[in-house]
Design a binder for these strands. Structure first.
Lengths: 343, 343
DNA sequence: GCGGGCATCCAAAGCGGTTTGAAAATTTGA
DNA sequence: TCAAATTTTCAAACCGCTTTGGATGCCCGC
């Protein structure tokens, strides 16, 4: 079924040393021998035992992803799957394994400690950073390479991250709406202890300020990003004495909810009411076509996964003190859901 | 930072043998010594190196999940994240690692062979089985424990699986609609080379047959399950000379699309038009509340992940020739989206 | 007082690779 | 042609753990 290096060597009348070197491309082995070894390996279906290899080399050849399962809000972030898909692609190409831990919030830090102490991974990816996130100092102290998908505002020490420019995206979206004459612009945000949501809010507020629009707490919400949340937010805000003429949604799913609310109210998107949403380009929530349904700040989370993986692998293979950072800009794509503010 | 067994033993003035046995609960070690060892292990933050341990024991202590990334339809199944979350929970409790491989369709079988040959996993989970799926015989021949989430119809040899009763769920849903007087019932299905979709179709057809309703190809569609697909299917079918009075949707997302179409057409769910959808209870697509939005065949995919993981671990730890199978029934929960057929 | 039985502990081999230091085979140079 | 230099190969140690097969010391009964 499968052979060990020793068996392979024996079948060739060679020592394990030579076989190992032949397969790993060391120079001190005869070209003819190398060919012979390669062929035999192929023929006998030899694959090095991962465990043995990484025990011998001291490299785990694996990256850890710890997925927190909030006990408070039992939600699995929907963008997670696409990010993982992108990262997984890259790991696969580079011969790295992806190991996943799903843990309760409270055990998350222990999970990292455990992964590191057991030498199970060479690096870890940090998902869903909060504004103030203990994982960054923790991983720093554990001395393992890590990369944050997103950022965490209240950390001053440098660390590696890949993020999209959430603040600018929402600032641009807000400005775009105010340029269209909207002055009642609502923000239907994700939970604002999440760093990305906090940044979006800042971008929104800055743009309002620049347009001399006083922020109105009645037009700002935050919650878990579900469809019913979008719907409720839309319905309730439209019942305000001075309802919004435009909405900023933090995700496609929330935008779906908003759209349904507007539809129930008999309002036509792009004419009676405007919506701009953030679009992570999740494969099952497409917002494309000749004219996308929604005007959106668009940024592929799958691509983010790919890049994040590449960065993390670089941190792992070429250790350096200088952290790696990358900011991805979201495109503002025009769809059918926006138009000038109605008089 | 972290200690090896040898160091721990040295610091205690004991042999590695004794320390290993003390920590792993073997009987031939003095109770007092065991306590002493445990305390030292705690104090020095000792965690056994996974690689070394599994090399020595021959058990990888890991389960592999291979996620196919179709090149044709670049979609990451949205239910995947919740299933993984459920399975991951169980692995964590049992001291198993979850390793994930994201691979292109064409390389999927090679990925399994590779995982097995490198002894990287003790068992594998098979996702998204097709009607005819080569992975089952492949894994059989590789001689590794595996469990299929779903089933594959065209395989006669026994294998282990966990599935929901898709056929009965859709048969019941269809019958429910026909009991309400509907005779034009549309099926907006997922891709029918996927086994689950084929079974749903069979359930649908059987129920039509039982109700003496001739099936109409114009009322049956299959595609990748996205919101726009649901919308288009709804719009186009409603334009038929004899439009449906009820829809069966294969997922919440498709149902969202259908709902939007009906709304655009000015039709009220539960009065003018009925929708029954399958609801996987994805955490970010809730369909609950006092009266759920949709009447649905409901079955938690997260729970399926938990159970599947438990079964697979059992197969791994207590090898047996008798395969394990489990059928979960979907509940038919009444929501606001169904009502008697309009005259 | 001595062999047998038990409770504890340990040395050493082994898991399947990599890597160091040295030996064997081959080529080179005078 | 033979020693030296260079290739090419190998034996053995090691990675960190488990596990087999004894050792060791102690208590017991006769």
């Amino acid at each position: 079924m499968s052979v060990t290096l020793k068996q392979l060597a024996a079948s060739l009348g060679l020592s394990p040393t030579t076989v190992s070197r032949a397969l790993n491309g060391f120079p001190e082995v005869n070209a003819a021998t190398r060919v012979r070894v390669r062929e035999a390996a192929e023929r006998l279906n030899y694959h090095p035992n991962t465990r043995a290899k990484s025990l011998a080399t001291g490299r785990a050849q694996a990256i850890g992803h710890v997925i927190p399962l909030s006990t408070s809000h039992e939600i699995v972030n929907p963008i997670f799957a696409d990010f993982i898909a992108g990262a997984g692609e890259v790991y696969g190409q580079s011969g790295y394994e992806m190991i996943l831990r799903v843990v309760a919030d409270a055990e998350e830090e222990r999970a990292y400690g455990d992964l590191v102490a057991r030498r199970a991974v060479d690096g870890v990816m940090v998902h869903g950073p909060r504004i103030r996130d203990g994982r960054v100092p923790l991983l720093d102290s554990l001395g393992i390479p890590f990369l944050v998908h997103g950022r965490t505002s209240e950390i001053t020490s440098p660390y590696s991250w890949l993020d999209i420019n959430n603040k600018r995206a929402f600032q641009r979206a807000t400005q775009f709406l105010s340029d269209l004459g909207h002055r009642r612009i609502a923000l239907v945000n994700g939970l604002e202890d999440m760093d990305f949501a906090a940044r979006r809010r800042r971008g929104y507020l800055e743009a309002l300020d620049a347009a001399n629009i006083p922020p109105d707490p009645a037009l700002m919400r935050q919650a878990e990003m579900t469809e019913p949340y979008g719907y409720r937010a839309g319905m309730e805000m439209m019942r305000l004495p001075q309802p919004p003429t435009a909405f900023l949604a933090s995700s496609m799913i929330v935008a779906y909810g908003l759209r349904r609310a507007m539809s129930d109210l008999g309002l036509k998107l792009g004419r009676d009411i405007s919506i701009v949403t953030h679009d992570d380009e999740l494969s099952y929530l497409p917002n494309d076509g000749d004219i996308p349904m929604f005007t959106a700040t668009r940024s592929s989370v799958r691509e983010a996964g790919r890049r994040a993986a590449r960065m993390l692998l670089q941190l792992v293979t070429q250790p350096t003190d200088a952290p790696l950072t990358e900011m991805m800009e979201a495109a503002l794509v025009l769809g059918a859901s926006t138009g000038p503010a109605p008089k």
